[in-house]
């Protein structure tokens, strides 16, 4: 489908352009960077990339169960809605920086939003 969100955003190239900017924002954000400190940066970047691909409506094989398992240790450390909001905010500002329209940013945020309850283990 040529007019899928993923293609309208620019596909793989858009994910590649976004991943460094997004990860850098997250690491520099004192509200949430404690959850990202002390991890293997390569693995973390690969995860960020997988997350962005999913949020951009691209091919992925994430399940709600993966999301729950992958974040359970962070929920135990206090991960909550405010942190989730901060990540979505960084996602939005990344896309804005890349010149993506507000409309498309809204669509991306809506996809990210569908993972909230799984990420927060609810």
């Amino acid at each position: 489908m040529s007019d899928s969100l993923f293609n309208r955003l620019g596909g793989d190239a858009a994910v590649d352009a976004a991943v460094d900017i997004f990860y850098r924002k997250v690491l520099a954000d004192d509200r949430i960077n404690e959850f990202f400190a002390d991890v293997d940066m390569d693995k973390q970047a690969a995860k960020q990339k997988a997350f962005l691909t999913m949020a951009f409506g691209g091919p992925n094989s994430y399940t709600g169960e993966d999301m729950r398992k992958g974040h359970a240790h962070l929920v135990a450390r206090g991960l909550n809605d405010s942190h989730f909001d901060a990540v979505v905010e960084n996602l939005g500002s990344t896309l804005k920086e890349l010149g993506v329209s507000d409309e498309l940013i809204g669509e991306v945020a809506a996809i990210a939003e569908t993972t909230r309850n799984d990420v927060l283990g609810r």
């Binding site: 991943v19 460094d20 850098r24 690491l27 520099a28």
Partner: peptide
């Protein structure tokens, strides 16, 4: 240094 270089703008 890796994290600092990344935050200083270097691509991973």
């Amino acid at each position: 240094a890796r994290q600092k270089a990344f935050l200083a703008g270097a691509s991973l």
